[in-house]
């Protein structure tokens, strides 16, 4: 039986047994290469589920849809390792109870579909720990290396050029599982810290605020990057911040459901002398 068929059966069993009220998975998209998230609530609909190398979107963000988990019933979700890390971050930030989430895990190493054993976040601790030690496989590594070699002025010019394309559609925010705030800082207008118009300053402000808000939290699932309609290489900013956080604080986002947020926790052995 193919992995896809196995997982369809599993989804069907979970729903029939009443173990979960919903399965969040992938369905056919508008073209053969595209998949869209589908929300299955009836065992009869599980045949609509698709699982192949095109299933790259991180679905964990749907779990924090307001009211979804408030009835304390469980939901099953298709997640890649990045998605499981995202689930851990969301649990650590008290946005959901991980016991309410049944993970249907899979991975796509080199585009090859592979199933992952386990159903609760704790089942994946070893896998995520190993991920921390491994070299991340980044799309666009050459570009990243090129940017690293630039002088600060050149780098500034590079990002200014990239950000000049931004149309402030906030698709990156919408696609990101970490952007769960009820009111984003850019929507706060008393005072209006971040300029909403799409000019150089406003675009810089937004993208820098976004990078900071995601440092130590981003799991590099690539949702933002794929969502960007003007192709700003957002993953590279996230990659850089993730590396900085790893180097400075030995912090890798989403390794456990109780991980302390790196920018809000202080330790007496932190290198900063001002920490009392």
């Amino acid at each position: 039986m193919s992995i896809e068929q196995q997982y369809r059966t599993r989804a069907k069993e979970l729903l029939s047994a009443g173990e979960v009220k919903m399965v969040i998975g992938y369905g056919a998209g508008t073209t053969a290469e595209r998949r869209r998230p589908i929300f299955i609530t009836s065992p009869d609909e599980t045949e609509r589920l698709v699982l192949d190398s095109a299933c790259i979107a991180n679905l964990s963000g749907y779990l924090v849809t307001e009211g979804l988990l408030s009835d304390e019933k469980r939901v099953a979700v298709f997640l890649r390792p990045e998605g499981i890390r995202a689930l851990n971050v969301l649990a650590a930030e008290a946005q959901l109870d991980p016991l309410q989430v049944v993970i249907i895990g899979f991975d796509l190493p080199k585009g090859e579909l592979k199933s992952l054993q386990g159903s609760s976040v704790d089942d994946f601790t070893d896998l995520l720990g190993a991920l921390k030690e491994s070299t991340p496989d980044v799309d666009g590594r050459e570009l990243l290396e090129k940017i690293e070699k630039m002088s600060p002025e050149e780098r500034f010019a590079f990002w200014q050029e990239e950000f000049s394309k931004c149309i402030k559609c906030y698709a990156c925010r919408q696609a990101c599982p970490m952007c769960y705030c009820r009111r984003c800082i850019v929507d706060s207008n008393q005072p209006q810290w971040v300029n909403t118009s799409s000019h150089t300053l406003g675009n810089f402000e937004w993208n820098i605020v976004r990078a900071f808000h995601l440092s130590g939290r981003c799991v590099e699932c690539g949702n933002c990057d794929r969502a960007c309609p003007v192709n700003i290489p957002l993953r590279l900013i996230n990659r850089k911040m993730a590396q900085e956080v790893l180097d400075s604080f030995n912090h890798f986002a989403g390794t456990s459901k109780t991980q302390e947020p790196v920018l809000a926790s202080f330790k007496k052995d932190d290198s900063e002398t001002f920490i009392l």
Partner: peptide, 12 residues
């Protein structure tokens, strides 16, 4: 009304 309850402030 806008607090997301992430508890970062509690730790910070």
């Amino acid at each position: 009304s806008t607090c997301a309850g992430c508890w970062g402030c509690v730790l910070a």
